[in-house]
Design a protein around this nucleic acid. Structure first.
Lengths: 180, 180
DNA sequence: AGCAGGTGTTTTACCTGTGAATGATATCGT
DNA sequence: ACGATATCATTCACAGGTAAAACACCTGCT
């Protein structure tokens, strides 16, 4: 019920670019089930739009989003992390983390300390400057995101967060399970 | 109501990685409103996971997702498009489109035709091979996406599609409006 | 002890996207 | 008709990511 209301409430037919694309496909291939596009296409497009908007506050601090993710991982866990842990935590490749760490240490935002037992690994922590930078940006960042998302009423936001969480949790669970 | 159910139904606390991250942030900064993360973080993460999964069928055809998007735009509109139109249609930069077109024409999937009136622009269309490739991949692609999304029940999928459409429509409407 | 193999990180070569010039043409105003 | 300006596409230099190889080190077996 809720779904049907939400789908037909605001405009006669979906007013976003994805629904226009779906209609085009259906005109060309009326036999195909285009249902998945309405979710996947929109998720991709939302991600692109939100990131673009989102980047604005970060860029003023001279940080890219991946860089901020890395600093944020160090800040929110509260303890030192190895490059491998950082890669897992930020869902990026080891090579990418290496490059970012190099830049961030040069900028004095991050410090590295060698492990005494296992000399392959390093432990990374925020410098005071790094911590201050994250703590300074985060409130702005969240305020900006709140403003962007306010196009949706609070109830809609709650429902959306819940559904995304459910989808994400199950996707993460069944990650490598699907093989086609 | 629906939101609250969905949020608390499957597990005691959110079982996805984003909710774990949010809990970490709240432990460090209990005063901050982390609400936006639960949407934006999840959208980003879902996009990453879905794309990774999604790419599998495409890669077998030797196409990247941006390349497929370009071919798809030509297929679904049904008529020729200029490079500029393709850039707008696929939300990418003109330079990126130029590069992709170069490769796709070399592979014989796309043909270009000069405009007689305005000699700056070219018109691009799919070759027969290009059209066949798109028509061959699309059903596989959709079937795969359907399988991936089936972790969510049909009602949940409908609600999610509706909410994303609403968010996306309004974001696209108020694109450059927000200035912070 | 000494070597085989595993693990954590970095390096390398390469590919793709981007923003800022550039070049080529069209359009507008006078 | 002619120059100024706008528009469309491409090229350029570069930043950033990736996979695979290389490197450094640990660990377990004999």
């Amino acid at each position: 019920m809720t779904a049907t209301n939400r789908e037909t409430d605001p405009r006669p037919q979906g007013g976003d670019t994805v629904s226009a694309v779906v209609r085009q496909w259906q005109a060309v291939h009326p036999d195909l089930d285009t249902g998945p596009m309405e979710i996947i296409g929109r998720v991709n497009r939302c991600a692109a739009l939100l990131q673009q908007a989102e980047d604005a506050p970060l860029r003023r601090a001279g940080l890219s989003r991946p860089e901020f993710d890395l600093l944020g991982a160090l800040r929110r866990t509260g303890h030192e992390l190895t490059p491998g842990e950082l890669a897992r935590e930020t869902f990026s490749s080891g090579a990418a983390v290496t490059k970012r760490l190099k830049q961030l240490t040069e900028r004095g935002l991050v410090e590295r300390r060698g492990d005494t037992r296992d000399r392959r690994v390093a432990h990374l922590r925020l410098t005071d400057a790094g911590r201050d930078l994250v703590d300074g940006i985060l409130p702005e960042q969240l305020a900006y995101e709140t403003a962007v998302l306010s196009v949706l009423d609070p109830q809609g936001q709650g429902e959306l967060a819940g559904l995304l969480g459910e989808l994400l949790g199950r996707l993460e669970g069944s990650l490598g399970a699907l093989r086609v």
